[in-house]
Deep mutational scan, measured.
Amino acid sequence: LCLSCLLLLSIWRQSSGRGKLPPGPTPLPVIGNILQIDIKDVSKSLTNLSKIYGPVFTLYFGLERMVVLHGYEVVKEALIDLGEEFSGRGHFPLAERANRGFGIVFSNGKRWKEIRRFSLMTLRNFGMGKRSIEDRVQEEARCLVEELRKTKASPCDPTFILGCAPCNVICSIIFQKRFDYKDQQFLNLMEKLNENIRIVSTPWIQICNNFPTIIDYFPGTHNKLLKNLAFMESDILEKVKEHQESMDINNPRDFIDCFLIKMEKEKQNQQSEFTIENLVITAADLLGAGTETTSTTLRYALLLLLKHPEVTAKVQEEIERVIGRNRSPCMQDRGHMPYTDAVVHEVQRYIDLIPTSLPHAVTCDVKFRNYLIPKGTTILTSLTSVLHDNKEFPNPEMFDPRHFLDEGGNFKKSNYFMPFSAGKRICVGEGLARMELFLFLTFILQNFNLKSLIDPKDLDTTPVVNGFASVPPFYQLCFIP
């Protein structure tokens, strides 16, 4: 009887509104179009389906209806031109279980708008005390260089060290202080973050999100993910309590202080979104989103620089000419370093880190290209289709910094550059991430030559594609002072 009810519900949900929705493959009861999707490479499946159904089409992941946007024109039209209507966060049952609708990444409505606005202002240095965020990134870059010196030019896997640096920048912003790379508390945090990104990138998590009943009734790695997140939240809560005892309202030290001051100002407002729970989840969101994405991009960047020594040589020549050896790189240098800027952009374009971004949702019934998309429908955007558009980027599967240079060698912007997504849900940490990528890479290449253990021609730069992110294959290298 239960199975029959489930089948009827499935057929009803899939057929309701079908005539007004964009076209798509016929879904099967309960499982939807899951058999037509390669869970290990969703992006490739979407590209293949777009050739049949066009740039806007409908898919069912289990009972979950999704409208897919494929190609620059439709992505821009939805996320930028109709930004407000497409600004919801799509259904993500596992995240909803962990975050309970709080924080910045998976919240919606008034809460999301207020927490996002506050976070953006704080990350842009408003009220962050005497030290700018650039100061913090430069300090961490110097520490990163010293850690790399300790390898003494012997072969090493850069994964751990390149993970520590961006994590420490976020820790400095949230908790005021950075950690030594051997600090046990810091190592515990890094371990949880690394384990979570591995778990999130498995097909099992996609299955849990498509069939949320699994979350409560089946064993699996999703339970470890929830446990790790609870551990992080508990740790952050302890630090919040310490801040409450030592805070000077006139001299905020970090993100937590800024949030607590905002809470104090709004304590008479019963509807205020500035609560301890929102602070803890927002801090966890910033740590989770700001560590692995940047560290994976850095790791991929070094692999691509090993593979293309001629590119590395040009970057180092530009560093020598603009910065020299006697001072630290700073963000002001970027405007005088078009080639280095182009390389950083090309790394992000080429690796296509989060191929389908995080799911959006429409906040109301939306008429879009003669289709009617009902309120609450999940929207999946193919960032691959934008970053690897062959008209904007000739030979998109090739790593080529000239994609971002004009004929005179000047840096050339592209509207198709969307590694952080676009519109109202664009990554809050975009400015910070771009600063980290530029400064960390210039600091490294100012101080070291990179040496591959094998012939650069034999290095494999093909991403290890998985459910969520594209990560580089394992490699080792030597940092030669």
Results as ranks from 00 to 15, higher is better:
65 R>C: 06
208 C>W: 09
280 V>I: 11
326 N>K: 13
434 R>H: 08
352 D>N: 13
73 E>K: 10
330 C>F: 05
142 R>H: 13
83 G>R: 11
117 R>C: 11
464 V>I: 11
424 K>I: 05
458 D>E: 10
431 G>V: 10
11 I>L: 06
481 P>S: 04
321 R>C: 03
275 T>I: 09
313 A>S: 08
350 Y>H: 08
436 E>Q: 14
129 G>E: 09
397 E>Q: 14
20 K>E: 12
294 T>I: 05
203 P>T: 10
165 A>V: 08
263 M>I: 10
185 Q>R: 09
281 I>V: 15
139 E>G: 08
449 N>K: 12
47 T>S: 15
216 D>V: 02
352 D>E: 02
117 R>H: 05
402 R>C: 11
141 A>T: 01
136 R>H: 06
165 A>D: 00
352 D>H: 03
114 E>A: 15
326 N>I: 08
103 G>R: 02
450 L>R: 01
1 L>V: 15
366 V>I: 07
327 R>Q: 04
234 S>R: 14
434 R>C: 06
249 I>F: 12
346 E>K: 00
21 L>F: 13
124 R>W: 07
442 T>N: 04
338 P>L: 01
472 P>L: 06
116 R>W: 01
180 D>N: 11
49 L>V: 07
54 G>A: 01
202 T>N: 13
101 G>A: 09
243 H>Q: 03
333 D>N: 03
14 Q>R: 09
178 R>H: 07
302 L>F: 12
342 A>T: 02
153 A>P: 00
351 I>V: 05
368 F>Y: 14
112 W>R: 00
394 P>L: 08
233 E>K: 06
363 T>S: 15
422 A>P: 02
337 M>K: 00
259 F>L: 02
351 I>N: 01
190 M>T: 10
122 T>M: 13
383 L>V: 03
178 R>P: 03
58 T>S: 07
116 R>Q: 05
168 N>S: 11
94 L>P: 04
65 R>S: 05
398 M>V: 14
129 G>R: 04
276 I>V: 13
108 N>S: 10
269 N>K: 12
328 S>I: 07
295 S>G: 15
56 V>M: 09
142 R>C: 07
136 R>C: 13
178 R>C: 03
171 C>W: 14
254 D>N: 05
66 M>T: 04
338 P>S: 04
105 V>I: 12
253 R>W: 01
12 W>C: 11
333 D>H: 09
301 A>T: 07
327 R>W: 00
271 Q>P: 03
84 E>D: 15
124 R>Q: 15
235 D>G: 14
65 R>H: 00
271 Q>H: 12
291 T>R: 02
219 P>L: 06
294 T>R: 01
